[in-house]
Amino acid sequence: MSRTRTRTPVVPGWFAGEGDDFRLLGTRCSACASVFFPREDAFCRNPGCPGGELAEVPLSRKGRVWSYTDSRYRPPSPYVSDPELEWQSYALIAVELEFERIVVLGQAVPGVTVADLTVGMEMEVVPGVLNEDAETTWTTWHWRPTGVGA
């Protein structure tokens, strides 16, 4: 039995696009050019800024590993996982985007483990699936080493 689930971002407005066009979405202040991810839409957090308009801006696709770890035990709710299935650990990667000078945490693409990673390695952001329920495929971003094919 299969039926079509709706693909819905786990958080609205944090990322968009498919394939090579996939991007994390932040906001940029029109007054001071500070970039925010997760996006700030109501106020600029630079204490020296008089306050500008915050406009959506896609973040760089690629960056370098700042650090990484993994989750060997099942995280508690609100993380969603099937308690009937054996827990499969996944890697978490903090990636530094050179242009934005920001470090963004994300899950690694399935199959990439801590053994595959080193600090400084180049990574790219790709679309991923966080979890699925009866009606919805909840989508997210994943980090993938640039040396690995789709």
Binding site: V11, T69, S71, P75, P76, Y79, L92, L105
Partner: peptide, 16 residues
């Protein structure tokens, strides 16, 4: 959000 989106428990930050 860090739990829902990433499952990032406190020990994962310590690991980083």
């Amino acid at each position: 959000l860090r739990f829902r989106v990433l499952g990032a428990t406190n020990p994962t930050y310590f690991g980083l």
